[in-house]
């Protein structure tokens, strides 16, 4: 207690508004969400369980035609799951993408809400909720600052309890935000799986094939 007494008002108000145990809790909550705790990216099944087709037209090949179709379709024989990738112009890259996609699908099938997709999806939901909360606070802070500024302009208060409170709230958010960062990376990485599901409007064209 003797430590707190010499503190100037802004710090004492910080302590009052945000007791440290809260921060610690939020750190503890955030940790399990970090990258290291996520299930590893599932491994594709062995090629002996995969039936692969390259979805090309019939007719002559080789030099006589210059195909741009690089689509790859995989069927997982034991489960019958079918995935397709035509994300890139490279067929060998599409083969890899399709295998990664198949691995995720199998993981979903086997592990349900403990699968990587489900856990990552969960994080994204929490992340979105936190973002929404944060921006709501930002707007609140902006509004308060505006109000404070106009009050100052009108010759009112320039400092004091009212002025410091929003800042303290902001400190707490910053800590929270830092903790979410590893997850943000994770999310970015996730976007790098250019699986078929990410291709807009795919299904519109499937039956249109001539």
């Amino acid at each position: 207690m003797a430590m707190i007494l010499p503190l100037r008002p802004p710090f004492s108000s910080l302590l009052r508004l945000r007791p440290f145990p809260l921060v610690t809790t939020s750190l503890q909550l955030a940790r399990p969400l970090s990258k290291t705790q996520l299930p590893a990216r599932p491994k594709p099944p062995p090629d002996s369980e995969i039936e692969e087709s390259f979805l090309k037209g019939s007719g002559p090949g080789g030099q006589k035609i210059n195909k741009t179709n690089s689509a790859v379709q995989l069927k997982h024989i034991p489960t019958g799951i079918v995935v397709k990738s035509q994300a890139t112009r490279s067929r060998s890259q599409n083969r890899k993408i399709a295998r990664d996609l198949l691995a995720l699908k199998l993981d979903e099938l086997q592990n349900g809400d403990q699968s990587r997709t489900a856990i990552v999806g969960d994080h994204k939901k929490k992340k979105a909720a936190s973002k929404a909360k944060k921006s709501a606070r930002k707007y609140k802070k902006l509004a308060e600052e505006k109000a404070a500024a106009s009050a100052a302009a009108a010759g009112g208060l320039t400092s004091g309890e009212e002025g410091t409170q929003p800042q303290v709230l902001e400190v707490r958010q910053d800590i929270e935000e830092d903790d979410w960062d590893p997850e943000e990376q994770e999310e970015d990485e996730e976007n790098h799986i250019p699986g078929d599901a990410k291709i807009p409007q795919r299904d519109n064209f499937r039956d249109g094939d001539v």
Partner: peptide, 12 residues
């Protein structure tokens, strides 16, 4: 020739 291939080429 196909809508799918058209969509792919336009994307590329």
């Amino acid at each position: 020739r196909t809508l799918q291939s058209t969509a792919n080429e336009l994307r590329w």
